[in-house]
Amino acid sequence: MFKIVAARTVEALIALLLMSIVIFFLSRLTGDPVALLLGDGATEADKIKLTRDLGLDQPIVIQYLTFLGKALTGDFGRSVAAGNQPALQLIMARLPASLSLAGVALAFTMVVGILFGVMAAVRHNSAVDIAARLIALVGQSVPSFWLGIVLMYVFAVQLGWLPTSGYGRWEHYVLPAATLGLFTLAAITRLVRSSMLEALGSEYIKLARVKGLSESVVIWKHALANSLIPVVTFMGTFFAVMITGAVIVETVFSWPGIGRLAYESILARDFPVVQAVVLVITSLFIIANLLVDILYVVIDPRMRSRG
């Protein structure tokens, strides 16, 4: 078990390293940062000075190593747009808003999705099942930027029940979390439903029933325990969906998180911040996948006995 965890960790570190190379070269090879920073009215002397200041006269490999060394110590350069603040500081200030929104959305989708999936499987082909299938279909088809606007229009503009945007109180979470969560809700409902249907038809469930266990124990303990394994395997994907979705949902609802920071810094062509945000989000992504892999080893007894 320890061996597997160690191997996964090394893999995650390699992925992170590769990712930093991709991000570094993407932003270096496709544009000249000097021209970008100085604009059109710059003199030749300015350009030469800035090139030297930024270390751009060094070989590209040295430049990458410098970038990596600084990034490892948390130095991603300073924001060009937001008053010369360090890029990492800007991100850290925005991170709690993003994480809390994703946390609320994920908790809500897990609870509702599992409940819905189990009920749909137990009452196969009933009204609940049809409703669950409909939600799964719509949830996987609706584009989140549009869903956000529709929810905002209905519940904030027309009905006036909830605020259109803002951050701080619980009311502010409802619409963005619902928008961010619907896709994952649909996915979890589908996964739980199909694996519960499979589990309910299996031998060990028949055995549990023959043993005389009550129906609720059979469903909620025996069948569900096995049906949750696919949900756990897809947790990394769900997190990925939430993070990429955050860029859109935070933009629609003016949520002060890193997703909107990424969007704003791109509009402002604020390069150091863009680079840092992409790297931070990708790291979160890789770390989440690593945690899911480890969790998987812990909960699945077949994996535990190996290695």
């Binding site: 390699i14 990925a240 791109i266 990708t282 992504f285």
Partner: peptide, 23 residues
């Protein structure tokens, strides 16, 4: 397959934003 894992762990929208910002 490592390459596949890498591709799977890159958030699309961010890649698009990065490319969009550059070019």
């Amino acid at each position: 397959m490592r390459l596949v894992d890498l591709a799977l762990s890159f958030p699309v929208i961010l890649l698009a934003l990065l490319l969009g910002a550059i070019s």
